[in-house]
């Protein structure tokens, strides 16, 4: 057994798991954070995308033990009690999620992109979503939503008092 202590969505949590446990299973089964999805379990579909130390990764390709002491953001950590994250809001407004299964991964990929590049072009958005598959909605509505969300976030930064 390995003991893993990570900061998830700002909260420090500990679990004791078998060494072969992936980060994905740790989040879903030990921490009940089921917003992170298992789609292919081999790093192709991106449904399990979470942000570790600021970078989007496939949580199915990391062992829980590798993440000990690190900072993990899952889809559950994006909204606050009274406010959707602007990306979530834009996805809702643009009806960008049909079945929704790929949504958490896509939204986190978008978050990581906008954090690094506040004004992404369509091509840059496509590149950032290259590791996320969607089978129902299609990507057009998502790309629209991500552009709008990026603009909202830029405006918010601009509106903040200096």
């Amino acid at each position: 057994m390995v003991t893993v202590t990570i900061k998830v969505n700002g909260e420090t949590r500990t679990a004791s798991v078998a060494p072969e446990t992936t980060l994905l299973r740790l989040l879903r089964e030990n921490f009940s954070l089921t917003g992170t999805k298992l789609g292919c379990d081999v790093g192709d579909c991106g449904a399990c995308t979470v942000i570790v130390d600021g970078k989007p990764v496939n949580s199915c390709l990391m062992l829980a033990g590798q993440v000990d002491g690190r900072d993990v953001l899952t889809i559950e950590g994006l909204a606050t009690i009274d406010r959707l994250h602007p990306i979530q809001k834009a996805f809702e407004d643009h009806a960008s999620l049909q079945c929704g299964f790929c949504g958490p991964g896509i939204i986190l990929s978008a978050k990581a992109l906008i954090d690094e590049n506040p004004a992404p072009t369509t091509q840059e958005i496509r590149d950032a979503l290259g590791g996320n598959l969607c089978r129902c909605t299609g990507y057009t509505k998502m790309i629209e939503a991500i552009r709008v969300a990026a603009r909202t976030l830029r405006d918010e930064v601009a509106d903040q008092p200096a």
Partner: peptide
Amino acid sequence: IGAVQTRNL
């Protein structure tokens, strides 16, 4: 190589 997530790992 791969995509953003796999390139980060």
